[in-house]
Design a protein around this nucleic acid. Structure first.
Lengths: 124, 124, 124, 124
DNA sequence: GTGGTCTAGACCACC
DNA sequence: GTGGTCTAGACCACG
């Protein structure tokens, strides 16, 4: 359910963090749900377990996850608000990318086209 | 004519590279034009000369700039195609950011809003 | 395994690049092998880490090396072809030096002697 | 009679210096002969006059040329020995290039082939 | 005046 | 542990 792009400039642990927040924002994961065990997810995503551990650790600090010792990690009760603030952060990052593409010479028309194309790509 | 954002995750030398490519793509700089001297631009942008030198060096490797010994750096004859490929690269990066923001839970509507807001911000 | 000549007119980072390409061309380094860590090699060759970093960075751009985040740099799968094109480049540069020495007045006999002497020097 | 390669890493003024020394070494220019006027040679070789001036200046310091004020520059009486020392310097440079090509992975056979090919190229 | 190389060392990020 | 970026400043070479 989470997609990793290792060629991306965005750190893998960030991709995991925003991936999980996105799942909550979209309602695919709810308060109290258990998230996959570190080793499990590492195997699934073909990623170093340390990287997963770091993502979880930061999500715990953030109050998005709760760790129950010996049991696993669970979506916390205030995960929703974390997810929402994650969404606004994502929006701000997107705006920065848009500004950057402008400086590289893209016209607004091209930017709209890019949005459209990505939308169609996704619905396939 | 080039804008630098020190807070951006995108390295400064990359911002300079795409800035120059953008200037050519928008027709503000043409084949044969001289680009600012390294130390000059460094002073203008409040950036270390080494950083400018690195941007220029990579643009030369790319064939976008030509260096004439002891004279300076000039927009090369095939800079236009480099600029265009730079534009498509920028477009591809934008699409990646859009995908990423989707994974973080942004709706298509929110993405359109972000584009709109950035547009208005720029025209101010 | 790489030799640096600080008195040479050839920049150190270029010597490192051709040194590595040479190691692959001679089969002493193979696809998938890890190259020394930047700080490591810097210490061994008594050279500034930045200089090594530059050589590695350019070899990555060239497709000769692959960098795995936080892990290190590795000989890429198509390093062999890069090494070969490096060898032809070296050959072309040698021919240019020969032409230059001709223009400086060396006879072909003297050139053969120079080759012979360098050969003997190396085998010592 | 002198060939310039502006793409070469060897500075143009050095190419001119060794070119002149080569002409003497090969007997095409003798003691007392006048060398071309700076502006003249600059025009012929499509080179900045400053560059010619620098080459001449250094050849004068070296004792290879003599300047007679208002008249021009002439091959000096001990030009021959300068030319000879130039030849040995050229030989040493050639040997360094050979060592460099070795480090880039060239075999001795390939080096001999390169010499042979350059020879044939010249006789055409 | 121009660019090119190198050093030194700081700081940040990822694994 | 790894690499990446940036700054500061020195030094050299070409035109």
């Amino acid at each position: 359910m989470i997609t990793i792009d290792d060629r991306s400039a965005v750190p893998i642990f960030e991709q995991i963090k925003s991936g999980l927040r996105g799942l909550v924002a979209r309602g695919l994961l709810k308060q109290g749900d258990q998230v996959p065990a570190i080793r499990n997810l590492a195997e699934t995503l073909l990623v170093n377990p340390n990287t997963i551990a770091r993502a979880y650790r930061e999500l715990i600090l953030e109050g998005f996850l709760e760790s129950r010792r010996g049991e696993g990690n669970y979506i916390s009760s205030n995960a929703h608000s974390c997810a929402n603030s994650g969404v606004s952060r994502a929006k701000e990052q997107l705006r920065e990318s848009i500004r950057l593409s402008r400086r590289s010479g893209l016209s607004w028309k091209e930017i709209h086209v890019a949005v459209q194309e990505t939308k169609e790509e996704e619905s396939r």
